[in-house]
Design a protein around this nucleic acid. Structure first.
Lengths: 167, 167
DNA sequence: GCGCGGCTACTCGGATATAAACTGTCCGAGTAGCACTGG
DNA sequence: CCAGTGCTACTCGGACAGTTTATATCCGAGTAGCCGCGC
């Protein structure tokens, strides 16, 4: 049970795209995976693969061609950690009840018994719901703000680094 | 990011062991993996493998030999879903920050910048903590009680089924 | 000078290998009960 | 009849394959800009 590292990559890239686009997705220019990957020392092709589901989820938009790349589809305040995680890990829950209670002792029980949900499944769902609720409560805008509070000037440094034409 | 099915198996087996032991681990007789597996239609050898970490975690005790098997190490009210999950999935967190921010643009920054934790990591940890908190709040005793409420007579049925010498 | 067409460079997107983790199976060390033997 | 002893059957525990998932890479379709040509 380990969350794919793609989630971390995606979240960082969203923050980076916002910094480079000055916070306005409308006027932002696309950034290629090569440049994004250079910013974090990541393998460019694999980062591209990881960002693709974000496009399908409507978090990013992609444009091909010479000046192409990725852009934010909406503002950071409208993107939650839950959105990013769901885009990459998929919408299904982490705990998937296999209903093993139906395959052994209770196989001959009347179907009415199984109308009631598995108590273990219910408990696991309850806990997982808390997790997802906490994820949905965190917007990328809030996270970015925390990052800037802890490292003042970070925004300007990033923009400077990317001003010259990197790989 | 999918939780191993071993968690579901382990939780069910703990409930089963409690039913068969009449709730008192002290006077309960060991139950072999063959019998436990028969109760749920599971592969016996693999179930054995899944229960082993529960022994190491101090949730179950195992005894070898002819009349051997597994027993609960403590009462259900002293076992939480968090205990079971940690035993099988391991103690490490689901989201593991790779600190990619240190490998690219910010590689040349002073080390003081990295004293502050990664804002994304912090947010993910916060959410995951909520999840674990919810898991730790659910004891197996409470789950068992819910199961019995939804299916009255379940306890007696299980005990009857296991009264005759199954595989 | 200006419009247009072809070309090139660069992009994403998916198809393709490689590594890791999960799932499942098998056999051996060890133990507890049991039968047999001897007193 | 009872104690001791060897044997057998059964248990867990870990070592060994098979299968799905995650990681990493590569190449092709397609687009946007740009250069050159013709008007």
């Amino acid at each position: 049970m380990r969350i794919s590292e793609g989630v971390e990559w995606a979240a960082h890239c969203c923050l980076l795209l916002d910094w480079m686009g000055m916070g306005d997705p409308e006027t932002a220019e696309p950034v290629s995976t090569a440049r994004l990957a250079a910013g974090y020392g990541l393998p460019p092709a694999y980062l591209n693969k990881q960002l693709q589901p974000l496009v399908k989820a409507g978090i990013l938009t992609s444009t091909a061609g010479k000046k192409g790349g990725f852009r934010l589809a909406r503002r950071l305040r409208d993107i939650t950690l839950m959105d990013v995680l769901t885009a990459i890990e998929g919408p299904e829950e982490a705990f998937q009840c296999a209903e093993i209670r139906q395959h052994g002792v209770w196989a001959d029980e009347p179907a009415s018994v199984f109308r009631a949900p598995c108590a273990i499944d219910t408990a696991m769902r309850t806990a997982e719901l808390e997790w997802r609720r906490a994820l949905a409560a965190q917007t990328l805008a809030a996270i970015q703000q925390n990052a800037e509070l802890q490292a003042p000037g970070l925004r300007a440094q990033v923009q400077d680094w990317y001003r010259e034409p990197r790989p």
